Amino acid sequence: MTSYLCAIGTATPTHRIAQAQIASFMAAALQFDAAATRKLQALYRVSGIEQRHSVLADYARTNGEFEFFPNTPDLEPFPTVGQRLGIYREHALPLSVEAALDCLAQLPEATPATITHLITVSCTGMYAPGLDIELVKALGLQPNVQRTCVNFMGCYAAFNALKLADAFCRADADAQVLIVCTELCTLHFQKSPDDDHLVSNALFSDGSAAALVQARPASQGPSLALEAFHCALEPDGHDDMAWHINDFGFEMTLSSYVPKLIQRGIRQLTERLLQNLPVQLADIHSFAIHPGGRKILETIEQELGISRHDNRFAYKVLREYGNMSSATVLFVLRELMQNLTPADAGAPVLSFAFGPGLTLEAMLLQVCYQPVAANASQPARQTEAAHQPLAY
């Protein structure tokens, strides 16, 4: 039995801030001199990011106007973990509800009453009773909906949620699984001149994405069949990408060596994913790659021989949203799905994400496209040609 990714909804905070504005905030917060400020601004210019979203308006403001950070030259006393997670509790639910409703609105056959499983994903905040229970109440899901939380796994966590959804749907043909990935990365700004923190502060942003997975394609329009997954570890990168809870927020380690580690493992990851499938890399022209950073995207293109155009959806998300951790690859998949046409039916799609460990995740999907019914109130009749599963 095949499961299908049928709809993806997204939501971002109202504060949309230009990358240059954030660079000015960071330089002031770090009390950089003119030379260090120029270097920091150059880092932000070459990031491939034009704007990011945050639940905090402070990143677009100057000292004296802050609402969350102290209005002192050095931002002291620096906000604690408890203060940051208080903001997470305030904003995570409404953002998640917005993404979930956007997702459900795209699929007429899915309603809050029909959802059988809820999977919440986050590495930027946690509490109990948690976001999963609050979503059940806010969305009006059935109280017996089966809930699973995927926490603190970083940027590749959406892949684990999709694997869980796939397993649920293979076990139950009536399953409808709602995945909600919500990340408020900007709560965890670290006031440190260390290179790892400078890079993290230049990339991460806030957003939420919700996905609906079920055991049949959407009644009309595009769906993505979940055909195969493969996971690998690069143990040499154990300390190059990490995520730790400390007294003043969650601290991200993201070294400049990460693209080299991904370059070393990405081809073997792809070969292992495809080795039992009737698909070769040369057959794939659609990609949904987690934009962990511009250099990571360029490294993968070089190693796999794909073009920037092939990878355009990742660049668009990076440019407009930055890196939203686990939600980001779903934003990329949404961009891809919005650009599919009936002519793409049967085409393979290759997706990647990366995270602490160093973990490398790969997923192969296949486009399924159901014609739009003449009468929009009636589901389109499913045709045999809509999806022919890949032979294992």
Rank of each mutant, 00 (worst) to 15 (best):
I262Y: 12
I284A: 09
L261D: 03
I266F: 01
P278F: 07
L254F: 14
Y257P: 00
L281Q: 12
L273E: 04
H290V: 12
R264G: 08
L254H: 05
I284D: 04
R272E: 13
L269E: 00
V258D: 04
R267K: 15
Q263G: 15
V279Q: 01
Q263S: 15
S256V: 12
Q268P: 05
Y257E: 11
E271S: 09
L261K: 04
P259C: 01
F287N: 05
K260A: 02
I284C: 06
L281M: 13
L277I: 01
I289L: 05
Y257G: 01
T270V: 05
A282P: 14
P291D: 10
Q263T: 06
P291K: 00
L281V: 03
L261A: 03
P259F: 05
L274K: 01
T270H: 08
I289G: 00
R272L: 13
G265D: 08
L273D: 02
V258Y: 12
K260W: 02
H285P: 03
I266S: 01
Q268R: 15
L281H: 03
T270R: 12
A282I: 14
P291R: 01
I266W: 06
Q275T: 04
S255A: 07
H285Y: 02
L277Y: 03
L274E: 07
I262M: 12
H290I: 12
S255E: 08
P278Y: 08
R264Q: 15
E271L: 13
Q268D: 15
H285D: 14
Q275K: 06
Q275I: 03
E271G: 03
S256T: 14
L277C: 00
H290S: 09
H285N: 12
H285E: 14
L261R: 11
D283N: 13
L261Q: 10
R272G: 06
Q263K: 13
S255G: 09
S256I: 07
V258W: 14
K260G: 01
